[in-house]
């Protein structure tokens, strides 16, 4: 049987699928040492060449190439731009290439079947579209290695959620080292206030997402709860910053854990209640006879919300700030629900 002759046939097709064009572009840029001029790419690479007009300005094709370049870079493929040494600053003489050494997964990055099983489970942790897409894409790339994972873990579904709308724009800002602004509703304040920050890390601590950022107004680092960011997170045009130290997220987590250890609350819990069972599991000290337990907490406002949910099952003995915070919350809920209809 004779193999179909692909080239000319395919090129006569009216429209070439995007993945075909992107694949051809990556191949062409990987194969070149010196790099290709944009004019060379548009006039020869499949998916562009069919639409290339030798006498025209090719404006649409140009835009297509710009978008494709961004998409390829978003996938972690190191697409480089090289300036011509003779003509610096001349856009027409820029060359594009993908250095193979920076494209290939390094040789030492190889995985055992057990490790791949764990990575599969780690990917399943994410339920949210964007993080789940990223982790599934990573798994696809690693499947290139041809290693078969061991049988997946049975009866196990650990899941993390991201319910804060601010998460995705902040994640992008982290990647791009882009300063952002947002309104932040700090507990104890009457209204949200605008913050301008350089985002340094996003961490989950005690089931909540926190942003660690350099606050530009006070010129100091601050930690924000994503759940208290109100409205949109928007980039500040033209404002970027240097990369924070590697592993900063681990330091932020350690700092939050330390803060947690500094705060302790004494709580009276009703015997046989949900509060006694659930809060009791987190107690660091307990007086069984008095029905009093001691717990650490990170954030008084967050902990007060949690305690308010237990209603009469728990009563804060100390500290006073937490006691007041819980009482104010219960009062707000009672006021909002008292009959007849009262103003909120």
């Amino acid at each position: 049987m004779i193999a179909p002759v692909p080239g000319p046939e395919r090129r006569s097709e009216p429209s070439i699928p995007a993945e075909d064009r992107l694949f051809s572009l990556v191949l062409a840029l990987l194969a070149t040492e010196a790099g290709l001029l944009k004019s060379e790419i548009l006039s020869t690479v499949r998916g562009y060449a069919e639409r290339f007009d030798r006498s025209g300005a090719n404006v649409n094709l140009d835009r297509q190439f710009e978008r494709d370049k961004d998409q390829i870079r978003e996938l972690g493929i190191p697409l480089e731009t090289v300036e011509s040494p003779d003509r610096p600053g001349d856009n027409q003489s820029l060359r594009y290439r993908i250095p193979k050494g920076q494209y290939d997964l390094p040789d030492e990055v190889r995985f055992t079947p057990d490790e791949l099983t764990l990575l599969g489970l780690a990917a399943e942790v994410w339920r949210e579209a964007s993080l789940s897409e990223d982790s599934q894409r990573a798994l696809t790339k690693l499947r290139a290695l041809g290693i078969e994972p061991r049988e997946p873990v049975i009866g196990y579904a650990p899941r993390l959620r991201v319910r804060d709308a601010a998460f995705e724009p902040l994640r992008q800002a982290l990647d791009r080292r882009q300063s952002v602004r947002f309104d932040y509703f700090k507990p104890g304040e009457r209204a949200p206030r605008e913050r301008r920050v350089n985002p340094l890390a996003v961490v989950m601590h005690e089931g909540r997402w926190h942003l660690h950022a350099h606050d530009l107004a006070v010129d100091e680092p601050r930690t924000f709860l994503l759940s208290r960011i109100v409205g949109a997170v928007t980039p500040i045009a033209g404002s970027t910053f240097d990369a924070p130290p590697a592993g900063i997220q681990d330091r932020v987590i350690a700092d939050l854990a330390e803060l947690r250890m500094r705060n302790a609350a004494d709580l009276a819990v009703t015997a046989g209640s949900d509060a006694e069972v659930r809060l009791g599991k987190r107690a660091v000290e307990r007086d069984e006879d008095a029905g009093v337990i001691r717990l650490h907490y990170t954030d008084a406002a967050v902990f007060a919300d949690e305690l308010a949910a237990y209603g009469p099952e728990v009563r804060v003995l100390s500290p006073e700030t937490l006691r007041v915070a819980v009482r104010e919350r219960l009062r707000a809920v009672a006021d909002a629900h008292r009959e007849p209809e009262v103003s909120r």
């Binding site: 972690g76 990223d134 982790s135 790339k141």
Partner: peptide, 28 residues
């Protein structure tokens, strides 16, 4: 074959998603 023979690297976001997922599994 031409041009490629090895697995591509992960993007910053892809690696971060798996690393954060693994961190969570450390709780197990």
């Amino acid at each position: 074959h031409v041009a490629i023979d090895d697995a591509p690297r992960l993007s910053a976001r892809e690696a971060a998603a798996l690393i954060a997922g693994l961190k969570y599994l450390t709780a197990l």
